[in-house]
Design a protein around this nucleic acid. Structure first.
Lengths: 164, 164
DNA sequence: TATTTTTTAGAACAAATGTCTGTTTTTTAT
DNA sequence: ATAAAAAACAGACATTTGTTCTAAAAAATA
């Protein structure tokens, strides 16, 4: 029998140095024009155009996005919240995940090794807003065993760049 | 006496619902055109144009970027590495930070509360590459007290969106 | 209510953009 | 060395883009 596959089945690209060079530039400036990229890499527009299209279709480039500064929109407090579940069955794990995905405060959710099952990153205005989240949203979930909140004192570095 | 201020002194914007609506759209599609945004928000191009420019200058919008899928470029292993320093003086902290910022594998570095001083997120291909990083880069720093590596089993959610 | 100030509408322009076609160069395989 | 295949070049086109201007509307102030 075949089960539903959540892993997307897209052409696996073998990227060369030119592809990587393009990605490197677009990671820093997603609005960079094909001509500018071409001239910076000593190429013509055609190969740059085709390579970008190829990487977009293969979802190497997942999206183009404006990166907003959380501090500037009153979301300057970051909290890492570690969570262990009571029930670890697949069923209960999925339920937890679905509920977590519904919380807009949660900007990241990782299933991790070690003492805890999950780490979620919570982005809020201040401690009041975090308490509100912790008590009325996270606290309402019925599968939690225990949690631990670690507060971010300062953000030294944060980037989406993975190509160098 | 005045000391060097690292905190950027930019006009603090009071954003209204229209600004937030624009940010919301640009976070999802940074290449969205001013006309498209305008029509979606039932506005003309002028206010949209001026509001975006204003938010760019105030660095509410930090940048436009292409978001690359780490898995697709052979950086599919994420490790959270927790670090405590031996010396906590300002001088030694700065040295540590400077060295960490030089490691391209580190996509995030947070100064945190609790047992450890820092959490760094390390993005690598596989365990071999992590060991290489752990031994030859992190291990070469001379101010480390102790560390703990937590491995990401699966990424449930990850986003840069902070406006909803 | 009257008046000033701020914001938006609507249209228009020049410049820049993605996209395509045919040709040339480079690479690969025989 | 030669043929075949793949990649890059160069240039051109239609469209769309950011941007600006003037007038109108809306909001804020007195």
């Amino acid at each position: 029998m075949s089960t539903k596959q959540s892993t997307n089945q897209l052409p696996i690209l073998q990227l060369d140095e030119k592809d990587m060079a393009i990605l490197k530039l677009l990671q820093i400036d997603g609005k960079m024009t094909i001509r500018d990229i071409a001239s910076k890499l000593n190429l013509s527009t055609t190969p740059v155009y085709e390579r970008i299209k190829k990487m977009e279709q293969a979802e190497v480039i997942k999206q183009y996005a404006a990166i907003v500064d959380p501090k500037k929109i009153n979301k300057g407090l970051t909290v890492l919240c570690y969570i262990t579940l009571k029930e670890h069955s697949k069923k209960y794990g999925k339920k937890f995940i679905q509920e977590i995905l519904g919380f807009t405060e949660v900007t990241e959710c990782l299933n991790i090794s070690g003492e805890f099952d999950f780490m979620i990153k919570v982005q809020v205005k201040d401690m009041d807003e975090y308490r509100e989240f912790y008590v009325n949203k996270l606290g309402e979930l019925d599968n939690l065993s225990h949690t631990q909140s670690i507060f971010v004192i300062s953000v030294i570095k944060t980037t989406h760049q993975v190509v160098f």
